[in-house]
Each structure stands twice: as structure tokens, then as C-alpha cells.
């Protein structure tokens, strides 16, 4: 299991917002929505589009983020692909806030 990497002070990430962050040389989208933090691969499994550039549907059930290229939606909590044209989940990573710092641990 890899370690937690700090990505910045929690106060730097507005609610709601989605931000591209560098976690151990990987592009991760850090999402702050309804008081919770989520971290997903910033990659649409359909064709590699950057999720951090797409709309955040924080009020949806389940809350999701949408790829700007073809509209594929992914659940914030587990990265599940919710709509076509994506059929595979994007990776979801563990996030925690400690002493005001957001920390992300990459899943394997």
C-alpha cells in the first residue's frame, strides 16, 4: 500500500470544486462537494478526457463528475461509470484531511 501524499490545505479547495492535482507523478482530480473530498484518476476511461475540466454534478444521486468530451459520468465515491460511452470505472483513491491538509493515497 502506498503512502498518503499531501496535495494542499483544505481551505484552498472551494466547495463545490474540482481541481487537478499531482499525486506521486499522477494526474488526480480532487473534488470537494457537499463537505466531502473525493479523489479520482483525472482520466475518462472512454477516451482519456480530463475529468477536472468537466461539469461537477454534486447534487445528483449519486454525485458525479462528467467528462467534457462525450459526457460520460463517473460516481465521485467509487469512480463507477454511470453513463455511456464509458463502461469501466475510473480509479478512486483514498482521501483524508489531517491538520487542515488534504492527503491522498493512490490505490494499487
Amino acid at each position: 500500500m502506498s503512502q498518503f501524499f499531501p496535495v494542499g490545505p483544505a481551505g484552498d479547495f472551494a466547495d463545490p470544486s474540482s481541481t487537478l492535482v499531482d499525486v506521486d507523478d499522477e494526474s488526480i482530480v480532487l473534488i470537494h462537494a457537499s463537505g466531502r473530498f473525493y479523489a479520482l484518476d483525472d482520466v475518462c476511461t472512454h477516451d482519456g478526457g480530463p475529468l477536472s475540466d468537466g461539469p461537477l454534478n454534486a447534487g445528483d444521486d449519486p454525485p458525479s463528475i462528467e467528462c467534457p468530451r462525450h459526457g460520460a459520468e463517473f460516481a465521485l465515491a467509487d469512480g463507477a461509470a454511470l453513463t455511456m460511452p464509458a463502461t469501466k470505472p475510473t480509479r478512486a483513491h483514498e482521501v483524508k484531511v489531517e491538520d487542515g491538509q488534504v492527503l491522498v493515497r493512490l490505490c494499487d
Binding site: 499522477e26 494526474s27 482520466v43 477516451d47 482519456g48 478526457g49 480530463p50
Partner: peptide, 14 residues
Amino acid sequence: SNKDEEWMRTDIRL
């Protein structure tokens, strides 16, 4: 930009 066909598969945002 990652909108360019040539760069769509190569992410240099980092």
C-alpha cells in the same frame, strides 16, 4: 492542448 488530436493521448498537464 489535450484538445489537439496530436496531444489527446499524452497528458502534459503535470
